[in-house]
């Protein structure tokens, strides 16, 4: 077993950063708050995220943890108060005009609710091709556009004849495929998927997850995959980042985090998620957290998880917890957690 060592230093940069090329996405110390004075809500507090090409980062946390704000920052929709966001070393918030437009096509989004996110008055072909109205030079002529729409439809497992049907003629799973095809229309490097399968029925969920995995191996697109469903995150992600009240409290390779969580919150999340195994039917060994997530208007001092933590001691209220770094069991990112008393 790799030894834990406590350190306050930032975790070492990932392997990808060392070969001279900056990673696809590198977020350092991003902070974002809303409101002013006493009614100040801290949505992100010093968040670090890194992601290489063709990889998937799972983002886990409960409501109010800041994962949606982070998604908006990654898409360039929300400017952070502090910290840096770099795509291939470039700061999207420093871009203007044409450069900004060109950057935008590299990062796309798939939304949670395929019933709300598609315009009911547009056909599948119009929906998929709509991004080209802004980004005119991606597929310039009409013939090529038609062809590309057919390609995109078949990439996501729809029929060419579906091009002229409207959203109400599709099931939830098919609509989500349209949403994915639309995100792919600009040939992005990164797709931010915000709970992309949680509105779908279980039997259809697996189909959409398969489409996402297949697209990644064929096109090399990277995903930031936001989900509350841990079994889905474990299946789809290379690395997992766990957030609590605006902070990344644990990060590591998926198997490291799931097999040996260091942060009590991560352990509690995993233990709270029900599992299929009927022989483990008793919830007696389950870690039950006290209370609910505190208000982001009023974040606890020291460790923000201490109010619900069963391991908390006096120190947790006064000192910010250090980063505990464990070597990964295989290749990849170090397994880090912010905790005075890691598991």
């Amino acid at each position: 077993m790799p030894e834990s060592r406590a350190t306050t230093a930032a975790p070492e940069p990932r392997a990808e950063g060392t070969d001279g090329h900056p990673p696809l996405l590198e977020v350092r110390g991003v902070t974002k708050s809303f409101g002013s004075g006493r009614r100040r809500l801290t949505a992100l507090d010093g968040v670090d995220v890194q992601l290489g090409r063709g990889q998937t980062l799972g983002l886990v946390g409960e409501s109010g943890c800041g994962k949606s704000t982070l998604a908006r920052v990654l898409l360039g929709l929300e400017r952070p108060d502090a910290g840096t966001v770099r795509y291939d070393g470039v700061d999207p918030f420093a871009l203007r005009g044409k450069e900004l437009l060109n950057w935008r096509r590299r990062v796309q989004m798939v939304f949670q609710d395929p019933f709300a996110s598609l315009n009911a008055r547009m056909s599948a072909a119009d929906l998929i091709g709509e991004p080209w109205r802004t980004h005119r030079d991606v597929v310039p002529d009409a013939k090529a556009r038609e062809k590309r729409i057919r390609e995109l439809l078949s990439l996501v497992g729809l029929r060419e004849s579906d091009a002229h049907r409207y959203p109400n003629e599709f099931s939830g799973g098919q609509r989500q495929r349209i949403g994915i095809a639309r995100a792919l229309a600009l040939d992005p490097d990164l797709i931010v998927c915000d709970e992309p399968v949680s509105a779908l029925d279980l039997s259809v969920q697996a189909q959409v997850l398969n489409v996402l995995s297949e697209l990644q191996s064929r096109l090399g697109v990277a995903y930031v995959f936001i989900s509350h469903d841990l079994s889905v995150v474990r299946y789809i992600s290379d690395r997992v980042t766990v957030m609590y009240l605006g902070k990344v409290i644990e990060h590591g390779e998926t198997e490291d985090v799931f097999e040996r969580p260091q942060h009590p919150y991560t352990a509690a999340l995993m233990s709270a998620a029900p599992v299929l195994d009927t022989s483990r039917a008793s919830d007696d060994q389950e870690i039950q957290l006290k209370g609910e997530i505190p208000s982001p208007f009023d974040i606890p001092s020291g460790c923000r998880f201490r109010t619900r933590c069963w391991r908390a001691e006096d120190r947790c209220a006064t000192e910010a917890p250090p980063a505990v770094v464990r070597e990964p069991q295989g290749m990849g990112d170090a397994h880090t957690a912010l905790c005075h008393f890691p598991l």
Binding site: V204, R234, T254
Partner: peptide, 13 residues
């Protein structure tokens, strides 16, 4: 996807 292996397609209906 609970016990599914990463990278292997899920047996979807």
């Amino acid at each position: 996807p609970e016990d599914a292996e990463r990278g292997r397609p899920l047996p979807a209906v």
